[in-house]
């Protein structure tokens, strides 16, 4: 299945290599995933650091157990401390 993956700020370095036609923006691209892949499996496969992150699928928060579907938009943002 095809999913749009967006990795913001310091996480953008974890975007996999992508063909030009798969790039959506500087921090987002289309990726091919096996059917039934969960959010947590994507995070593990990419090797994202074990730090706080905001995970949204199609504009709403999604837990690691969430199973992705064709055409989903997965976005991950790493907030940093200070306020």
């Amino acid at each position: 299945m095809r999913v749009q993956l967006a990795l913001f700020a310091s996480l953008s370095q974890y975007l996999p290599e992508a063909a030009a036609e798969d790039r959506v923006s500087a921090h987002a691209q289309m990726v091919d995933l096996p059917d039934g892949t969960t959010v947590g499996q994507v995070i593990t496969t990419l090797g994202l650091p074990d730090e706080p992150r905001i995970v949204f699928v199609n504009g709403r928060h999604a837990p690691d157990e969430h199973t992705l579907a064709e055409g989903d938009r997965l976005a991950i943002f790493p907030p940093v401390a200070g306020g």
């Binding site: 706080p52 790493p78 907030p79 940093v80 401390a81």
Partner: peptide, 18 residues
Amino acid sequence: EAVDTAHDKAMLVAAASE
């Protein structure tokens, strides 16, 4: 969201979204 720690920021944005 106007808290200090990264953990609380992530937790609160997720909780508010849900």
